[in-house]
Structure formats: C-alpha cells, structure tokens
C-alpha cells in the first residue's frame, strides 16, 4: 500500500518535472536571446511577435515537407528578419525601442494569423510541396519531435527522464545556456557586449564598434526567439492555434530581469516559470480547477508580477552589472 503511494508520487513528480523542462525551454530560449540583446543595450518587446512567427513557420514547413530541421531554420530566419527591422529602427534610426518592439509584436501576431488562415495556408503549402495531399494541408497538428534517451543519465530516478529523455532542441538549450554564459562572461567579445550596454560612449572610445555589436546581439535575440517559437510548436505543443504564444514572449522579458541578465540564472528562472505552467496542467489533470480553470491559467502572469515586485526590494540588483544604457539609443559624437 505504502509502496504504491510512493510509486504514484514518483511517477507524478517525474511527469511534472518533465513538463516543467519542456514549458521552461520555450522561455529559456527566448530569454537567452533577449539577455544578449539587453546586455548590449537593446530592449526588444518584439520577442512575442518573433516567437509566434517562428511557431507559424515551423508549422507550415513541417506540414509541407516533414523536415523538422528545415522548419527550425526557416523559423529562426524569419524571426531574425523581424529582429533586423527592430535593429534598424532602434540602432540606426535611434527611435524608441518600446514602440518599435510593440509594433513588431503586433505585426508578427497579424502575419502569423494571415499565413496560417486555412485558405492562405493551403496555397502556401501547395507552393512549397505540390504533391502534398489536400487532406494534409488542412491538418492543424504535426508529429512532435522525437524524444532521445541519453544512455545512463536517463536512468537516474525522477531527474533522469525529466532532463535526459527529451528532444534535440532541449538538449541544444542546455549547451546553448552554458555556451552563452561562458561567452558573455569569460571572453573578450562578451566583455565588449557588456561594456556596450553599460557605457557605449566609453566602449566606442576604446575602439569597440557599438553599432555592430548591438546589431549582432539583437539579431541573435531574434534567432533565438524564432527557435523558441519553433520549439513551442514542434517540440512542445504540436497543434497550431492562432496566438498560441499567449504572452510567453513577454514573460521571457520579465525572466531576463528576474535573472539579472545572466544566462545561468535565466535557466533557473525559466524552469521556475515552466514549473508554474506545468503545475497548472497537472492540477487540471488531477481535476482541480475544472469549474474555474481561468484562475490556474492566470498563474504565470501573476507570478511574473510578484517576481517583478519582489525583485524591486532586492538590493543585490545593485551589485550585479546592470546594462545602464538599456533602451537608450547611442549616437556617436562627431
């Protein structure tokens, strides 16, 4: 009897952790990219729009070709194009970054809806793959990315399956997190990115190309937002719904502040927020909130606000290198 209860508990915990990692990865990828953009001084409220465009293209491409890798690359490419618009407006034209980002989010939400509208979608799919059967073109779901078990590591009880029986993008996110942390804090170019975000005039006088670094960081942010969108669709919830990002891009922005612009802390925060989302699903599965699921659905947004408020009390913030020039355009004095 007791052993059975424990077994059920362990199974529940395993499933919960596994979906925590999946939900967290969406936020992790987007927030990693945004960390770089903000470290260089560029605030990008367009993450939400880049993410949904990434999700839409991964849907269209997997449906048309069945090629996951191609879908991911196209999703990242399209999101990078949107990031390029944001970069031109906020770096070259030195206009308001909040407004530019919002415009890109609205554009992305509209465009993703336009391209995936059944009529339009069928045309696009047929153009990519003329031999695609009509019945396929009306599908809203595609096969999810397969899980790969890592030998030995996936045998660890509870933790093993949660972290090491997942799909390729999740494994890539582990590597990316460490790599991006190492690059930002342990290399010369990483130092340059941080100095551009803290004091662009000083960095410029030291011969660092402020504009180039901001462009690269913003485009990287776009590419990762696109990857986050692609993962959301093919790696997590492979059923297309218009507006399926549901504000996750904005939650990722809050996560960057929560993590004080450090990739490693972003990872911890992403799993925390992912855990909230997973908990909401698990509670619904257990039958809680069947009469009022809306309050469970509010959890991620409420958590974000609580975290933002709690953070304002945090004196530690002052100790960490905060990008002081965030959202301030840089004009070179001639």
């Amino acid at each position: 009897m007791g052993a059975e209860v424990v077994a059920v508990g362990v199974e529940w915990l395993g499933a919960f952790l596994s979906s925590t990692v999946q939900a967290g990865t969406v936020l992790l990828l987007a927030a990693l990219g945004e960390t770089y953009a903000e470290r260089s001084g560029i605030l990008n409220l367009g993450v939400e729009g880049m993410m949904i465009v990434g999700a839409a293209f991964s849907y269209l491409i997997t449906l048309a070709t069945g090629n996951d890798l191609l879908a991911i690359l196209v999703a990242m490419g399209m999101a990078t194009l949107l990031a390029l618009i944001h970069a031109v407006i906020s770096i070259s034209f030195r206009l308001n970054q909040i407004v530019s980002g919002l415009a890109i989010t609205l554009f992305g939400l509209g465009l993703s809806g336009y391209l995936t509208f059944p009529d339009v979608r069928v045309g696009i799919l047929r153009a990519i793959n003329p031999s695609l059967p009509m019945s396929m073109a009306y599908r809203q779901s595609t096969p999810k990315l397969p899980d790969i078990s890592i030998p030995l590591l996936s045998q660890i009880p509870v933790i093993g399956p949660a972290f090491f029986r997942q799909n390729a993008i999740i494994y890539a996110s582990y590597v990316l997190t460490v790599l991006l942390w190492w690059f930002l804090f342990k290399t010369r170019p990483g130092l340059n990115i941080r100095s551009v975000g803290e004091n662009p005039a000083m960095a410029d006088s030291l011969g660092i190309n402020v504009y180039l670094i901001r462009y690269v960081a913003t485009l990287l942010g776009g590419a990762l937002a696109g990857l986050a969108g692609a993962f959301l669709f093919i790696g997590y919830q492979p059923f297309w719904v218009e507006g399926m990002t549901a504000g996750r891009g904005f939650v990722a922005l809050a996560l960057v502040i929560f993590a004080a612009w450090s990739p490693l802390r972003v990872m911890a925060g992403a799993y925390l927020f992912g855990g909230v989302e997973a908990l909401q699903f698990r509670l619904q599965v257990l039958g809680y909130g069947t009469t009022a699921p809306q309050f469970l659905l509010m959890l991620p947004y409420v958590t974000t606000i609580i975290v933002l408020v709690a953070l304002s009390y945090e004196m530690i913030r002052k100790k960490i290198g905060v990008p002081a020039a965030l959202a301030i355009p840089y004009a070179r004095e001639e």
Binding site: L106, F107, L109, G110, L111, Y114, E242
Partner: peptide
C-alpha cells in the same frame, strides 16, 4: 488578420 497586419 490581414487588417491586423495593415494596422501594424
């Protein structure tokens, strides 16, 4: 959504 794109 074409109109949303137009507005954006």
């Amino acid at each position: 959504s074409g109109i949303q794109v137009f507005q954006a």
